[in-house]
Write a protein that binds this DNA or RNA. Structure first.
Lengths: 195, 195, 195, 195
DNA sequence: TATGAATGAGCCTTCATTCAT
DNA sequence: AATGAATGAAGGCTCATTCAT
């Protein structure tokens, strides 16, 4: 049955997520992934072409899931202020989740400089993030809360602030400072887009 | 003689820079580094404790050098506007240099999430970047060109924008767009710090 | 029902023949064989003890079939000259078939040096070939066309010439030269057995 | 020093010869070869590009050495009869050596059907064997001992007889019959080339 | 000071075989 | 009777590190 195979693939990707987060993109072995998934060594190779294939699916999945969550969170709000808050609260969801994701995401960004497939997956993520920003910005302009601004460029700037702040937070290695970085990022975005 | 040894270490670090930029942090081998340095295989191990030691010295050196250049460029200017321009022009020095540096730097950031030594080296880099931002911001406030703003936080925000924009540029894989990203980053920083 | 099982075994052996010819004795996998037979992966293991068992049956079958054909061809003729011609024309049946067979047969000969079962199967093939030669030689002697000669030894010599020439033809890798090698082999055999 | 490296390569090739003879071309592992050479696992890969490279050098070496020996043996004789005897005595040097060589050689012939590099090495061997036959045949014709015959074709026929007989002897698996097969091969060649 | 031969751990991958369904 | 998921052993290869020279 197809369904069962899909479940297995999910199980392996989930295990790979944890494994890469713990050990790093290049350090992680297929044995690690198999161990985390509680399956035997050959299984990841049975469900995926090779190691890179596992990891590419992992990248695609986590970026997609993050986008879905962010989109949902923003759609629930009506005012631009709440939308932005919801967006950043979803991005900065919590120290544990953020650490896990950004450990993996940073690894992928580093790899992406030499790997076209990863760049393409990331490109889609960027597009999705941009579409979220656009919704917020349009609403803000409609309300007169935000200054006139190019959606494209503002989307990039917001993305830059988020990634930049998140990296800086990661480099502190301190979970306690998570909320402070979230707040600072929020203030900075607001300063940037407000009139 | 100490001097000669130091020269050799420099030679190896320089070779490592090129090697890591070409092959990536995890893919690079000591053999690669030795080849780029035109020395025999045992030399890197002779002058450094091990592979990681070579790479840590590399990270420390390139971040230091970048800071020196940026500092110098900003010090040459007198107005906040020119200072900021000089800063960003030095950061976005050119597609070739930026690609080389950010390939390596991204690799290090990815590693740093699991390597304290790298985090510490990066922390010093952050401090240095912050000190540059501070000089510019103070001057801008003195001129009344910038709004009242927390230096610490603004420094982080500027750093975030720089890294964030640079990563996005890297992901395009397109050297031609370098100046467009530099300009966008400049506009964004300005929007953020101006009143 | 027994009959159905036998058909399935035939199907698998036939597929194995093509598979081994294409991929080589050691490179071929049970998955390959299953694919060529258009059955699922477990089937070869279901109808045969293991991989070697499949291949041993394959060797037995192809050598038997070749013998049958050669025997039939020779029996159709009445003069020793025609018999020999018929024999060699059947052996050198054509570049495509010969390549397919000798690829597999050479693999088996190579294996046979370490595998008794294969040696035994080949021994039977040798006996059969010898019996064909014997028929031709006896007829030739009766006609006074061939010199007095030990059937046993002449049979071996003819077999040696056939295999030897076929190997040399295989090593040319050139289908076009097939008929030249057949002619040369024929001339050589004739020179050897004629007075 | 270059000399030492060459000795090491010889040591590995020699070990590979024994290993392939014992285990077979495809079954043999680099670990086997390392073990036979009494070196560590990585050494064969240090001195050769990969496994195939080791084996190709092995094939080239053993065929070259055999040719040298045969050539030398034939050159020592003056009459065509003695030359032929010397040739075949050198070819059928003894059961132990012949078994070792033909186990490996048969493996290579089997591989050669799919491997161009092996075919080329074997082609050179064929050329060399042909040149030996030519010397003998010319001498025989000069003496009037052999019939008029095409050197090229006769060379192929002799090679075919040698390989064919040797294979048949190998298939007996019986060292005792070695001299009988040698004698039979000699008689057959003689019958073929004599008037 | 420098070399590069040698080591051996560890990785990815393949694949025969088993077995629950 | 047949499937194909799962296992795990084994192989080729890479490479950091060591060490005799």
């Amino acid at each position: 049955m197809k369904r069962k195979a899909e479940l297995k693939r999910q199980q392996i990707i989930k295990a790979a997520y944890q494994a890469v987060s713990d050990k790093g993109y290049e350090s992680v072995t297929l044995q690690d992934i198999a161990d985390y998934a509680d399956v035997s060594k050959g299984v990841p190779n049975y469900y995926f072409q090779n190691k890179e294939d596992v990891l590419a699916h992992l990248l695609a999945q986590i970026t997609d899931r993050i986008y879905e969550k962010e989109k949902l969170a923003v759609e629930r709000e009506t005012t631009s202020a709440n939308m932005l808050l919801a967006y950043l609260n979803t991005v900065f969801v919590g120290p544990k989740e953020n650490e896990k994701f950004y450990r993996v995401y940073l690894d992928f960004l580093a790899q992406a400089t030499k790997n076209k497939r990863y760049r393409e997956i990331n490109e889609r993520f960027y597009q999705n993030c941009s579409s979220i920003s656009k919704v917020i910005l349009e609403q803000g302009k409609k309300e007169g809360a935000f200054r006139t601004i190019d959606n494209e460029e503002a989307g990039r700037t917001i993305r830059a602030m988020i990634d930049g702040y998140m990296i800086q937070w990661m480099m502190t290695g301190d979970h306690m400072q998570h909320s402070a970085y979230r707040a600072a990022c929020y203030r900075s975005v607001l300063s940037y887009i407000q009139n």
